[in-house]
């Protein structure tokens, strides 16, 4: 299914005014786009519908906050956009490319080249230095040792940790650890950075520093950022908000369900 067909299908299910906002022919392809994705889980004998038909589009250079109460489907949507999971139905497009035809290894490769992750709990390898943590994604790209180190050093310098290269996570503060994680997400020069509650484990001062780093990288490098957050202040600084409720995208102002995430 092409993006256009997806849009038509979405349009046939959603309110009519939504479809007019999408015209894949006119603008460059979205960094990542979900078209009418549904995701259900089997729990015991029953079924949980985590996403019930969601379409969102993250454009190159976007800065989007994904908000909504717990259990609204934010994480599920992020996993789908990050190619960590597959929708039960609907499709996810990366730079206009349909990902349904890819096998797990194909998804892994695409993920490695196009998407960077920042997690709430940092997810750094404990016994590994900052620079080696950052270089990790490049290993799976087959980059040589020298190239990996050079790029990891550059990425750490970009987040202001050029002086902490050989420190292990335990020797770094929480804010520094999250900046190492951001450097790791960026080292492969992805087009999209997905951040799941990046300030959730940090105090407000270091949280603000981390957010400033993310914003600067978005501004200077044009990497699209989508962050899941509960923090209103963090969400308010995003260029656009996508609010979710009960597995659907809702209008941020009215909380009424919309078929398409509002494009800014």
């Amino acid at each position: 299914m092409s993006p256009l067909e997806g849009a038509q299908r979405a349009a046939s299910q959603g309110p009519p005014e939504a479809s007019s906002q999408v015209d894949p022919q006119a603008s460059p392809p979205a960094a990542v786009e979900a078209v009418d994705v549904r995701r259900s889980y089997r729990v015991g004998s029953g079924q949980v519908d985590a996403l019930r038909g969601v379409s969102v589009s993250i454009r190159p250079g976007d800065y989007v906050a994904l908000i909504g109460p717990s259990g609204s489907g934010k994480s599920t949507l992020m996993h789908l956009l990050g190619l960590l999971d597959r929708p039960t139905s609907g499709q996810v497009l990366v730079a206009g490319r349909d990902t349904r035809t890819l096998d797990d290894d194909g998804l892994a490769e695409l993920r490695n080249r196009t998407i960077g992750f920042v997690f709430q709990a940092f997810q750094l390898l404990a016994r590994t230095t900052a620079v080696d943590n950052v270089a990790l994604p490049l290993i799976y790209r087959g980059a040589g040792r020298r190239e990996r180190r050079d790029r990891a050093v550059a990425a750490l310098e970009a987040v202001g940790l050029g002086h902490r290269l050989d420190h292990r996570p335990a020797q770094l503060s929480g804010g520094e650890q999250q900046r190492v994680a951001i450097a790791r997400a960026l080292v492969g020069e992805p087009s999209l950075l997905l951040a799941d509650e990046p300030t959730g484990n940090l105090d407000s001062v270091t949280g603000a520093e981390v957010m400033a780093t993310l914003e600067r990288l978005n501004r200077e490098r044009g990497v699209a950022v989508m962050l899941v957050t509960h923090d209103r202040d963090v969400a308010a600084r995003a260029g656009r908000q996508i609010r979710m409720r009960d597995g659907l995208v809702v209008d941020p102002a009215t909380a009424a369900p919309v078929a398409w995430g509002p494009d800014s």
């Binding site: 960590l84 797990d104 290894d105 490769e109 997810q123 994604p137 799976y140």
Partner: peptide, 16 residues
Amino acid sequence: TREIGLRKALGARQRD
């Protein structure tokens, strides 16, 4: 398990 999940998120294939 978490390390494996992380490595996969960063692009490790099954065979890696």
